[in-house]
Structure formats: C-alpha cells, structure tokens
Amino acid sequence: MRDCLIADYPRIIFCAPQISPYPETARQALVSLLENFRSDDSCGPIGLVGSSMGGFWATYLAEHYRLPAALVNPAVNPARRMPEYVGQTLRPYGGGTEEYRLTPADVDTMHRLEAGLQHPLRGRYWLLAQRGDETLDYREAVDFYRGQRQTVEDGGDHGFQGFARYCKPIVEFLFNP
C-alpha cells in the first residue's frame, strides 16, 4: 500500500503505526493518532486499511469516527483466542524482540471493545478475504461485514496473495464514495 501511494498518490499521507499487543494501550494510541490527524487542517479526508488484527482496529476506529475502511482478512473476534495466550511469554506477530504477556484484564478489555461493535455497522467497509486464510476463518468476516462491499477469493492465505492489485481500487473506495 505504501509503495502504491508513493508512486501514484503522493498527496495521501501514509501512516502504519506499530500497534501495542495490549488492547487498551493500542486503543488509546490509535485514538490519539486519529485525533491528531483530524485536528490537522492540512490532512484532508481519512481512510483506513487494516489487515488481521489491524482490521479489527480499523473497524473500531471506523465505527467511532464514521470513516471508510478496507479490511484485509480481518480479525473479527480476537478476544476469543486470547485466553489461550494469557500468562505466556509472547513476541509481536510482525516480528521484533520485545516480549509481552497478556493478562485476564487484557482479555476483558478486548471483550468490551468487541461488544462496542454492534450491528448494523455505521461505517463504510470493503472486506477483502481469501478462503485459503490459514489463520482466520474468512466466513466469520463475511458474516460480520454482511451488507457491506465484499470481495472473497478462492485460495490465497492470511497474507492475502496478490494484494497489490487492489491498492488503487482501495484508494478509490476510501476517497471517492
């Protein structure tokens, strides 16, 4: 996405923050970041793109700020998997050396955040999912984002094979309703 924006849409600001694995810390940081962009008059319209857990966070922000979002193999019920990791020493999914440990309070926080995402969804979404996702069940996302634009492909994987072909259409979706 970054490469596409640099090459074809240099006026669009690209921001891909490192997101904390701790739900409340992540929520606070993302809300603060979004508020900063919203208060900057030179920023222009805001669109969100998120993959996996980033898809959950993009949905959270889209619902609270009524923003458009493109979601790539998004996590729709992340709290459900969290208990099996409570107390374990973990490393960030995207790499890195900083270890962390989830607590029962983190699971409770994630359940609370999920509960705030009620249907009907108020944002404008485009779900991009691949049936071959080995990490998440694409059918959960199809159900969660029912009534929204959806592209569901056979094959693929959690990294969404061939994502680059959707970059320009995503920009059009986010900024040209």
Rank of each mutant, 00 (worst) to 15 (best):
M1G: 13
D3L: 06
D3F: 00
D3R: 11
D3A: 13
C4T: 10
I6Q: 09
I6F: 06
D8I: 02
D8H: 14
Y9N: 12
Y9I: 07
P10N: 08
R11N: 13
R11D: 14
F14Y: 15
C15I: 13
A16P: 05
P17M: 10
P17Q: 08
Q18K: 13
I19C: 06
I19V: 15
I19H: 06
S20I: 10
S20K: 06
P21H: 02
T25C: 04
T25F: 00
R27Y: 07
L30W: 02
L30M: 10
L30T: 07
V31P: 03
L33E: 06
E35T: 13
E35V: 12
E35D: 13
F37S: 12
F37D: 08
R38N: 12
S39A: 14
D40V: 10
S42A: 13
S42R: 14
G44Y: 10
G44V: 09
G44L: 06
V49W: 14
G50Q: 04
S51A: 15
F56V: 05
F56P: 06
W57D: 09
A58N: 05
A62H: 02
H64C: 03
Y65I: 07
R66F: 12
R66I: 12
A69Q: 07
A70Y: 00
V72G: 03
N73D: 15
V76G: 01
N77P: 00
N77F: 11
R80T: 08
M82F: 13
P83R: 07
E84S: 14
Y85E: 12
G87N: 09
G87E: 08
Q88H: 11
T89V: 11
L90W: 01
R91L: 10
R91T: 07
G94F: 12
G96L: 10
T97P: 07
Y100V: 11
Y100E: 09
R101D: 09
P104Y: 05
D106M: 01
D108T: 12
D108I: 01
T109C: 14
H111F: 06
R112W: 04
L113N: 02
L113Q: 02
E114H: 00
H119A: 15
P120M: 07
R122Q: 15
G123N: 07
R124I: 11
Y125P: 02
W126P: 02
L127R: 00
L128C: 10
A129G: 11
R131V: 09
R131F: 01
E134V: 01
R139G: 06
E140L: 12
E140I: 03
E140M: 08
V142Y: 03
D143C: 02
F144K: 01
Y145D: 06
Y145N: 03
Y145F: 15
R149W: 04
Q150C: 04
T151I: 08
T151L: 11
V152C: 08
E153N: 03
D154F: 01
G155P: 01
G155M: 04
D157R: 06
Q161E: 14
Q161S: 13
K168D: 15
P169D: 05
I170M: 13
F173A: 01
L174A: 06
F175Q: 05
N176D: 09
P177C: 03
